[in-house]
């Protein structure tokens, strides 16, 4: 059967139009309306404020239990290149923002025990030492 070249081009144009529209709708549905539920994540994908809170919990438990290997294992889930520097940054932020000692002390202790120190931590480290020594 001989197909008219003009008819063929017209058919291809209609199919192409459908393809473009369909792909657009598919992308909208797949990315916006019904995106894949991402429910198997590591702490590394959490928003930074949640990561900071997660770190604070790790530090609070560490101050209580003094188990550095467990703290390190838990921190590794955050996927930071240098977890010690991350904890140090949080400790300094907490001090500068005037947060409570209940939050500052654990972060200072954990940062210090991970090998990171800032002079701003010194009074808190002294406080921890005197508390734990008594």
């Amino acid at each position: 059967m001989k197909v008219d070249r003009r008819s063929f081009l017209r058919a291809a144009a209609w199919i192409g139009l459908g393809l473009i529209l369909g792909a657009g709708v598919g992308l909208f549905l797949g990315w916006v309306a019904w995106p894949i539920e991402f429910s198997d994540a590591e702490p590394a994908v959490m928003e930074e404020r949640f990561q900071a809170d997660y770190t604070l919990m790790i530090a609070t438990v560490y101050l209580e239990e003094n188990d550095l290997s467990t703290a390190r294992r838990r921190l590794s889930g955050l996927g930071k290149e240098d977890t010690g520097r991350w904890v140090l940054g949080l400790a300094v932020d907490h001090i500068l923002n005037g947060e409570t000692e209940a939050e500052i002390l654990p972060l200072v202790k954990l940062a210090n025990d991970l090998g990171h120190f800032s002079p701003i931590m010194e009074p808190y480290l002294f406080q921890i030492e005197s508390t734990q020594g008594s």
């Binding site: 209609w14 199919i15 192409g16 139009l17 459908g18 393809l19 473009i20 529209l21 369909g22 792909a23 657009g24 709708v25 598919g26 992308l27 909208f28 549905l29 797949g30 990315w31 995106p35 894949i36 991402f38 994540a41 994908v45 959490m46 928003e47 930074e48 949640f50």
Partner: peptide, 24 residues
Amino acid sequence: GLIVGLVVGLYYAWLVEPVSYVAA
């Protein structure tokens, strides 16, 4: 075309390049 495009679009959006959450 619409059906084929829809399938291709969903395949790409769900499997090839799914939305990546970085602030979950």
